[in-house]
């Protein structure tokens, strides 16, 4: 006799993607519960924490926006090592609009989102034909290049940056604005992923020759996702500029590029929930570890290593499997 682990899919019948046959409130809850977690978590539970932790959750949400934007590019086969490009561009556009012309946040945020998205798309347009590591190298270089450019030409405040940018009218506005924006981006991208459009985007990553020979201009589609990812990243930057009342060279810092990737690696690539979850683990964890002083980075690094080695598929995919399947040990005859 030998024991073997058996995995059984849990009850809800799926006829095809997104079409469910629901028979009870229990099944409705089963489907709705995972989707309610981010909504309730961000809008109801996070505000219960202290002022200090609320600030942490704001910066978490900013990183999560960048991580979700990273995942959209990843879905289309574009590996970005330069999310800070989006952040920095958005921050500078909103900062300049506000500092030079007094544009209030209610206008500067949407303008920075759109113009930032267009600007980032144009910057990356010439290298859209590159794939994998070659595209990644260029995205890594661009923010470095822009920060040196600002430093050398002393435009936009030079190394000092733009200070005295208007903040939001209240801490509550600031808090809910970013959390709602995150939810909109998250569920919007998920919606997109599930549509035929998303299928084409994932197809470009899988086999771009097949997509091309379906008569679809893959470069035009890549441009579109680049714009969407850039706009979300630029919004994060514009929001950050108003929240910190500062826009400067640190906006192009490597943190904004690396943390979204780490979040995706820990949380699980290939779904938007993974990077979101990853960001909400990594950023608060980094705050908790502050108590350790100088050893903080050591433990942070160890956590990253253990997370990636222990759960290479990512935490989200692990949780989802556990949620969707019943596991039990059965005895099998060895014939």
């Amino acid at each position: 006799m030998e024991r073997r682990k058996e995995r059984i899919d849990r009850g809800v019948k799926v006829r095809s993607d997104g079409i469910y046959a629901l028979n009870s409130y229990r099944e409705v809850f089963y489907l709705a519960f995972p989707r309610l977690i981010p909504i309730l978590g961000l809008l109801v539970i996070c505000p219960l924490f202290s002022e200090y932790w609320k600030e942490v959750f704001v910066s978490t949400a900013v990183y999560a926006l960048l991580a979700v934007s990273w995942e959209l590019l990843y879905m289309g086969g574009l590996i970005s090592l330069g999310q800070s490009l989006f952040y920095g561009v958005g921050a500078y556009i909103a900062g300049a609009l506000n500092a030079y012309w007094g544009v209030p946040p209610i206008l500067s945020l949407p303008i920075a989102t759109l113009v930032g998205g267009v600007f980032c798309t144009l910057m990356l347009l010439p290298v859209l034909r590159l794939r994998g590591i070659y595209f990644a190298m260029v995205t890594l270089v661009l923010p470095l290049l822009l920060s040196r450019f600002v430093e050398a030409t002393r435009i936009l405040g030079g190394t000092e940056g733009l200070t005295g940018i208007d903040s939001f009218s209240s801490q509550w506005v600031a808090f809910y604005l970013v959390q709602v924006a995150l939810l909109v981006a998250f569920f919007g991208f998920r919606r997109l992923e599930g549509s035929d459009y998303g299928l084409v985007i994932k197809g470009i990553n899988d086999n771009d020759r097949a997509i091309m020979s379906s008569g679809i201009n893959i470069y035009w589609y890549k441009t579109q996702i680049l714009f969407m990812a850039g706009a979300v990243g630029a919004f994060a930057g514009a929001y950050g500029a108003h929240y910190d009342m500062f826009a400067g060279i640190p906006g192009f810092a490597l943190d904004y590029s690396i943390l979204p990737i780490a979040a995706a690696a820990v949380g699980g690539m290939g779904s938007f929930a993974g990077p979101l979850l990853g960001a909400f683990i990594l950023v608060p964890l980094s705050e908790i570890l502050r108590a350790l002083g100088a050893l903080r980075i050591v433990f942070y690094g160890l956590f990253l290593v253990f997370a990636v080695v222990g759960l290479p598929e990512g935490l989200f995919h692990f949780i989802r499997r556990k949620y969707e399947q019943i596991e039990r040990w059965v005895e099998v005859d060895k014939g």
Partner: peptide, 13 residues
Amino acid sequence: YKNLIPSLFSPRV
């Protein structure tokens, strides 16, 4: 059947 979606989604169709 989803393998045909990119073709059906194409501008031509």
